[in-house]
Design a protein around this nucleic acid. Sequence first.
DNA 1: GTGAAAGCGCTAACAC
DNA 2: GTGTTAGCGCTTTCAC
Lengths: 343, 343
Amino acid sequence: MVKDRTTLRLQDVAEAAGVSIATASRSLSRTSGVSEEVAERVRGVAREMGYVANVHARSLAGGASRSVGLIVHEIGDPYFTEIASGVLRVGAREGLTVQICHTGRDPDQELEQIRTLIANRVGAIIVAGSGFVDPSQQAQAKEDLARYRRAGGRVAVIGRHHLSADAVLPDNQAGGRAVAQHLLDLGHRRIAVATGLRSLTTVADRLAGVEEAFAAAGLSFADVPVVEAPFTRQGGKQAAEEILAAHPDVTAVLALNDDMAIGVLSVLRDRGISVPGQVSVTGFDDVAVAVDLAPALTTVRLPMVEMGEQALLMALKEPSARPRRRTAGCDLVVRDSTGKAPA
Amino acid sequence: MVKDRTTLRLQDVAEAAGVSIATASRSLSRTSGVSEEVAERVRGVAREMGYVANVHARSLAGGASRSVGLIVHEIGDPYFTEIASGVLRVGAREGLTVQICHTGRDPDQELEQIRTLIANRVGAIIVAGSGFVDPSQQAQAKEDLARYRRAGGRVAVIGRHHLSADAVLPDNQAGGRAVAQHLLDLGHRRIAVATGLRSLTTVADRLAGVEEAFAAAGLSFADVPVVEAPFTRQGGKQAAEEILAAHPDVTAVLALNDDMAIGVLSVLRDRGISVPGQVSVTGFDDVAVAVDLAPALTTVRLPMVEMGEQALLMALKEPSARPRRRTAGCDLVVRDSTGKAPA
DNA sequence: GTGAAAGCGCTAACAC
DNA sequence: GTGTTAGCGCTTTCAC
């Protein structure tokens, strides 16, 4: 589309300014080799005409790419929304266009999105969705990204992936440990876990932390019910129903993300089960709304916005020989949804 | 970036398949003029090699654009997140890349984002953020978009804008009327309104509806306190503080979006003011979390996801002579945050 | 049905 | 410091 003669070309600007197209190009892309005086005049003319360079031509001619891609599992999910905020913020500051793609937690979709971004010649790709425990699920993506990097592309991932790239790593395991520890400290022993897909590294790591806490307390984790459902509010509801049906005597539900925890709270409220009086509930992520729920959600805070910022900043830096990694701390935030285990 | 000899070119595919570059192009872009047999073989070779066409070259050569731009005020805002979901869903279905930009509700930023999208030669631009009451604030954007349309670009807006383009129009005024009516029916007379920027058409329209309901009930709107603050959770808190300080006797707070309502609820909870016992609260939008709050929020439902879908679908359709418009209904959803006015 | 060749608008060598 | 020109990788006439 957009083929016409209304759209201004660099040549139009050059003519209007009375310089060659090369000089015009240099002036606008702020490359050296033009007298500041001429450059300023050209920029003035361009601004006045409302000229905006054709990104495709620029990219094709070998100019630097002014866009980056962000791959999330699900934009509807506040976890990713906040990461996206961070990425967009840095992007805006750096004058970068951000293309957001989502995968629905499907590795095949992820691969396709990665390829699309590469085809779009984005300068950097941020993979924000969790990795998969099984490396083979991302094998092809790994290969494509490696080729992309060799060709000069930058890659950063958020979370544990089998992709070799700069990474922002939330300490999910420590978070899982902390929140489980918290429940155990409150005297809970009949705890159920509501989790998303266990094939995700995020889930696996959080779960590992939980298990660790049980072990540290000398308790068996083997008979703790772990209910797997979609990593969403709806999944949380589903998990809660299942848990209440099979284990009506639980005193705490440990959800592995806030969205699920919100679903759990909703079911408990519908059933007239008091929180934390009868059942304590915990989440993970500390999404913006967690503090405004009633009861306010006890959860593990992850600095999602900062993680998004960090990821893009890392990707933008000069590539290092070996992948960089930055860990993001997890802080237990105790609010009103947890209390002592009922006697 | 990405200039190298690892990235496959169309020519590589053509050579591997033993055809000319023209035939390869036709095969891959499914243009007619190639025998199905050859085309299939070329596609097979390309797939096997992992070839992905360079979007920039394709676009520059005059091919159809496979990307669209979405402009939102704030991705952190669930209202826009849900619209984005809708747009991304349709985009994925149609094989389109979606570039999301946010403006922070700043008309200048908006203009810049529009220009960037045009420079990116996106095939369509969806403006999802509210318009501004003052046309002059978007005058330049209007001009740029008009030029873009003349050049073959597609534009759709969500909400009332002074931009002439296909539009998805939520009936904000009816919604405002309905929710105000609801409070009046419950016997509330000392009502305060918490609102975002009144320079936004969305706010103006909702407010007009509220005013209408007052008029219909034979009540004066003149002395209803209308507190303006950012259209966010934080803004809601701020507004609530102000309202409680200046008008401690209000029995209802009508917030003009859910985010603000959540902030209001939070302040009331902190102050130990019961909802809806002492004060009723209403929102607007019906974001996903509204139903899971405690108390569940009475609000006006807007089909945000569908609005996003509609907007992109409209933009993708053959352009019509005159702008199309689709209205999106507003439904009052009564939940637990509103009750009879205390005696 | 297939191939050769002319651009699309820009950047970056390379001349001057 | 400025201009000329050869591509970047693709689509699309236009020949055959």
